[in-house]
């Protein structure tokens, strides 16, 4: 809500008068139009990536009713594997000469690896715990998260890994949607587009296909779904796989945007993404994406729009705090999230 308010506020300030020209707040924050534009775009970028990761949390929570803490590490695995692939392609000289095929190959490998990770994780760590008290799988997932993070450190070392350069035509600033003044780096546009397309495909898959229907049925009531002839185990695996694939997409976007990865890359985005899922309403796919965007923009705009006028020194240091305050506020005033939860019968309280 805070964010919707913020966005409305910004839009109101921007649109009626002079779009992104030189909107200057006379008070404290001295934010110019281009500054706001950059903040909003980067907030949206972060937001859609949070949203993509959040889908995994949300779907798993919807089906199994627990927070899969290790989902952030699935994302990290995707970033790592896309780094390895792109690095190797770069070494072979293919990255620069055949950028698009290389990129597609990288995307495919990242998605396959992250999906596999999610499925293996479900098989080994979570399936034996079906039906145990709900804190048990949650604690297990914290363990899995630690484990994967430290496996990455053990295998690849703790240092930061760099992605190869992207071609000039991709990173150059372009005008977004032909709105004058809204010039954005190509990569950032790509992030938004890819995220939108993946989201649409997921929506189609879940809402319009038979397997998607099975998934929703399992989320609604496992026992009845089983009675209806749905293979519950298979559907749960599928849920994990799709969550993993979405995290894979987010991972490759993250890689393209920030071009750097460390073993702990997944931890904070993972927590933020769950926060996003809760903010948007757990189990609600659109809500996850909206929650992600709210969180991303809140993090990006919040410190400078809210904290700085309050006289906080070094406000951006507290941007994570802003994100968590948003979570707390949403849960206090609207415990089922901004867009409402969709949970199985036994999880609704």
């Amino acid at each position: 809500m805070l964010v919707i308010g913020l966005l409305a506020f910004v839009a109101q300030q921007i649109n009626p008068t002079n779009p992104f020209a030189s909107w200057v707040n006379p008070d404290a924050n001295r934010l110019t139009g281009p500054a706001l534009r950059d903040l909003i775009i980067s907030g949206l970028n972060l937001g859609v990536m949070y949203g993509l990761i959040a889908l995994g949390y949300s779907m798993v929570y919807g089906v199994l009713g627990f927070i899969n803490f290790a989902h952030g590490e699935v994302f990290m695995v995707a970033v790592m594997s896309s780094w390895i692939t792109s690095e190797k392609l770069f070494e072979a000289g293919l990255w620069e000469d055949f950028f698009i095929p290389s990129l597609l190959l990288t995307v495919m490998i990242a998605i396959v690896v992250s999906t596999t990770t999610a499925v293996v994780m479900e098989r080994i760590a979570y399936r034996p715990l079906r039906g145990s008290p709900r804190l048990i799988p949650l604690i297990t997932s914290i363990g899995v998260s630690f484990f994967l993070q430290n496996v990455a450190i053990g295998l690849f070392g703790p240092g930061a890994k760099r992605y190869p350069q992207l071609p000039e035509w991709l990173t150059a600033r372009r005008t977004l949607l032909w709105i004058p003044g809204v010039e954005v780096e190509g990569t950032k546009i790509l992030v938004l587009v890819v995220a939108g397309v993946s989201m649409a495909m997921l929506w189609y898959y879940v809402e319009r296909t038979k397997t998607g229907k099975a998934m929703r049925a399992v989320a609604e009531d496992k026992e009845i779904a089983a009675l209806m002839g749905i293979d519950v185990d298979k559907t749960i695996v599928r849920t994990f796989a799709i969550g993993g694939a979405m995290a894979g997409v987010a991972g490759i976007l993250w890689g393209l945007l920030f071009r750097s990865v460390v073993a702990t890359t997944g931890f904070l985005p993972g927590i933020k993404a769950f926060t996003a899922a809760v903010v948007g309403g757990v189990g609600n796919l659109g809500g996850s994406m909206a929650g992600g965007v709210s969180l991303g923009t809140a993090e990006s705009l919040g410190p400078l729009l809210l904290l700085e006028p309050m006289g906080v020194k070094g406000p951006t240091q507290l941007k994570d705090a802003v994100a968590f305050v948003l979570l707390i506020a949403v849960l206090l005033f609207k415990p089922s999230g901004l867009f409402g939860e969709r949970l199985s019968a036994e999880d609704r309280t």
Binding site: D38, S42, G43, N45, F267, L268, E299, L304, K313, Q317
Partner: peptide, 18 residues
């Protein structure tokens, strides 16, 4: 400006805007 980032931060747009 005198400000800080977090060691795990990746998106520097807010701090750089500040």
């Amino acid at each position: 400006a005198f400000t800080g980032v977090g060691k795990d931060d990746t998106d520097m747009v807010p701090v750089l805007t500040e």
